[in-house]
Computed example of a mutant assay.
Amino acid sequence: MRRAKISIIGAGNVGATTAHWCAAAELGDIVLLDIPEVGDMPKGKALDLMQAGPIMGFDAKITGTSNYWDTADSDVVVITAGIPRKPGMSRDDLLATNAKIVGSVAEQVKKTSPNAIVIVVSNPLDAMVQRTWQVTGFPPYRVMGQAGVLDTARFRTFVAMELGVSVEDVSAMLLGGHGDTMVPLASCSSVSGIPLTQLLPKERIDAIVQRTRDGGAEIVQLLQKGSAYYAPAAATAQMIEAIIKDKKRLLPCAAYCDREYGVGGYYIGVPVILGKDGVEKIIELQLTPEEKAAFEKSVQAVKNLVETMNRLLRG
């Protein structure tokens, strides 16, 4: 039986660590691609990871390359390509630069893997997944953004730390864009089925929500150079597993919403059923008035981001 083929575009920390998690879980054969300017770096990382196989007990063919035809006919493509914000660079500069990079990647994916499911990890996430869909022209259920799994993992971690319980017993859900306006849902979060609101006072929940929103920035500040990659990569690998194994996982991710939640044609973080066809169903939740207002604010922020991107690209 043919193994699944997973191609990861961008062999930096997030891309290489995603390859690591996928190989360790034996999700399929992996292609790690980066631009020619980095030389043989993807080949070096791929070979190093393959040599871990005999020690850790996994079988996977891992290829490093700068040639998109090596990714041809992938089942899943992960896009991590892009640059971090640099000193003197405005948010618009970052948005325009990464939109061009991600757009160029999407053109290649469209050409080499026309039947793939695409998971976008590049930032600013909500705009980049919209750009990928625009360029590939793929059905929207085959293009999605990874953010919700990461953000709920951070929320779950902070709840577990606060209560002194196992992270395995904490369940959480969130909506909205990947950033300051994300909406962790206390009403849909629990510990072994006990509603979070029965275990923590509102002020502590609010503090955890805020720390979740600032989760990426907190790690950037601690690292001083670079940004998070272990958890973002693990979140991406969980989505890949749900797709390749057709697990029908109910996970939050950036999915295309038209009538759902009244969004009107944008990618936004929502709970979905993830399986072999990609986003197989979007789950619409009953929100409290406070949650609904926060979600609408987040949707508007994403719309503004996408419109700014489109304007900059028209240039």
Rank of each mutant, 00 (worst) to 15 (best):
K111Y: 02
Q238V: 11
M128I: 01
M50F: 06
A255Q: 00
A147R: 04
T18L: 13
T63I: 15
L150R: 00
K297N: 07
L285I: 09
P252Y: 05
A24W: 06
N115C: 10
A81H: 12
V220Q: 10
L125Y: 11
R259I: 06
I101L: 05
G262M: 12
I119P: 01
L163Q: 14
E37H: 01
K100P: 03
A235I: 08
G226Q: 05
L174Y: 08
T136N: 04
D48N: 11
L95D: 02
S7Q: 06
I219D: 02
G215A: 12
I243G: 03
S104P: 00
L223R: 13
A99Q: 00
N123E: 12
T308G: 05
D180E: 08
R154E: 05
R142E: 00
V183K: 05
N115T: 14
G278T: 13
R131Q: 09
W69T: 14
S104Y: 03
Y68G: 01
L94I: 10
E241Q: 15
C257K: 09
P42K: 15
T212S: 11
P195E: 11
V143H: 08
A23C: 12
I283E: 11
S171M: 07
V270F: 03
D277R: 13
K297I: 06
G176C: 08
A234W: 11
L305P: 03
K276P: 01
D40P: 04
D59I: 14
S187N: 12
G64H: 03
E290L: 03
Y230V: 05
A153P: 01
G39T: 09
M50I: 08
I83M: 10
P184L: 07
V135N: 00
G39W: 13
G57K: 12
C188H: 15
A106S: 10
Q146P: 06
S74F: 10
G275C: 10
I6W: 06
A172F: 05
A4R: 14
T65E: 08
T80H: 01
G12P: 08
